[in-house]
């Protein structure tokens, strides 16, 4: 465990909690892509099946349980409790265009052809693109609430910090996981455009809105 990995995990946790609290406090999930949230719930579920097979540390187990719990709570709020506020008309990204290729790739490129490992690989690939429905929704409506942009910022920051963590681990532990690294680079790149808007607009006190 190094400082980049820890701050990455905490940044991820911050993102998840910010989103959950935003929805809970405002009693509204307007502007939030339910599809992205379902994909993230699927990511955590398929990745953390090892909760049942191996114990790594109390920290590891606790974080996994929190991530899974929060992601399902978010999905529950969007599709059940606060369904009336869900902006389904703007959440039109076709997720099958992500799930099918990602599933195929997980079968073809993995560390080990075993069910648990294929599901882990699937979750890594899926996570790298799971935010696309949310970004698509923002590009469609042309704007995002400031709190939503904070959520996206911490979510992107988490993966960027993980990239530094992997460089660190490569140098100091000789550890590297090519699948995680390539997917992590792709995931981080997807946030670059958003990071630019976040720094140039949101941090200067303006609302994130795109030119029509």
């Amino acid at each position: 465990m190094n400082i980049f990995r820890l701050t990455g995990d905490l940044s991820h946790l911050a993102a998840i909690i910010i989103l959950l609290l935003k929805i809970w406090k405002s009693r509204s999930c307007a502007g939030i892509s339910g599809k992205s949230q379902v994909l993230f719930a699927l990511v955590f579920t398929t990745r953390y099946l090892d909760l049942l097979t191996s114990f790594i540390s109390l920290y590891n187990t606790t974080m996994k349980v929190i991530y899974i719990g929060c992601s399902y709570a978010t999905v529950y709020l969007i599709y059940m409790k606060l369904k009336a506020t869900y902006d389904g008309n703007h959440d039109t990204f076709r997720v099958e265009f992500l799930i099918v290729p990602v599933g195929g790739l997980a079968f073809l490129v993995n560390h080990d052809f075993s069910p648990l490992e294929i599901l882990w690989t699937f979750s890594i690939y899926l996570e790298s693109v799971a935010i696309l429905p949310q970004l698509f929704m923002i590009s469609k409506t042309g704007e995002a609430e400031t709190i939503t942009t904070h959520y996206l910022f911490f979510l992107g920051l988490y993966r960027a910090l993980y990239l530094i963590n992997w460089i660190w681990r490569f140098y100091f532990e000789g550890f590297f996981d090519m699948i995680a690294i390539v997917a992590g680079v792709v995931q981080t790149i997807l946030y670059c455009d958003f990071f630019y808007l976040y720094v140039t607009k949101v941090l200067k006190g303006k609302k994130l809105s795109l030119p029509a």
């Binding site: 990995r5 590891n60 991530y67 560390h111 699948i179």
Partner: peptide, 10 residues
């Protein structure tokens, strides 16, 4: 590549 199978990250 084998090392990746022990997944200790989140």
């Amino acid at each position: 590549w084998q090392r990746g199978i022990h997944h200790d990250e989140l």
